[in-house]
Amino acid sequence: MNNNIIECSDVSIYYGPTQAIRNVDITFPKSSVTAFIGPSGCGKSTFLRSLNRMNDLIPNTRVTGEILLDKEDIYSDAIKVDQLRKKVGMVFQKPNPFYKSIYDNIAFAPKYYGKKKKELDEIVESSLRKAALWDEVKDRLHKSAYALSGGQQQRLCIARAIALKPDILLLDEPTASLDPLSTQKIENLVVELKQEYTIIIVTHNLHQAARISDSTAFFYMGNLIEHTETKKMFTKPSQKKTEDYITGRFG
């Protein structure tokens, strides 16, 4: 049995008449970290957002091809988008905690899915522990999430996503707005979390991709140019374009 949790074949994404992603084939193995790299506007974020159907929010978006999650086509009519997004968590570029307390930020979604008060306490604690935030916030769980620093807010957003026990975590440039120290904490966390979750991370920072990912995918102008082991990608890329990009000739 193969170990791939997501299998994409011939995926194209259109915004109205413009094609943002062209015929991409890619698979993601369980419990691994995959990094998406590429210059701005190459389609990496667009592709990421098609994996939990966040692109549905943009009018006139169309996805063709097939994206299978656990062998199920996530764009089929039988799929409930809410359930899909519960299974595929997402963390955004800018930390976006709700205007609620730290506790409520995490408990909001599990409560919505019917968890009781006692379970909620446990979920909040374990999620915060996993996000390496528990010790910093355990005394002020009922204070506003906006009292936290940017890096803490981002870890809170990660905790919020894993509180639903998803299979997959999508991280869309999660450290783009953070200082180096907070960035390092998040990177350590990602490496930690891959034991339990399949992680796909979009990043602008090639060093970050090299440090934390098992495999790396390079996107350029809507095409997936190369997808291979990270080590190989950064030492012996098979494509000329990839080499140009990672050696800093453009991008």
């Binding site: 997004r85 997402m90 976006n96 205007y99 996503a161």
Partner: peptide
């Protein structure tokens, strides 16, 4: 209300109506 707030809620699989009443309206 920042678009990010709405995205955060929908990305957690919260329904649109619940997002309106529990995220958008409070903000």
């Amino acid at each position: 209300v920042p678009k990010e707030q709405i995205e955060a809620s929908l990305a957690l699989g919260i329904s649109k109506w619940k997002t309106i009443t529990h995220v958008i309206l409070p903000a």
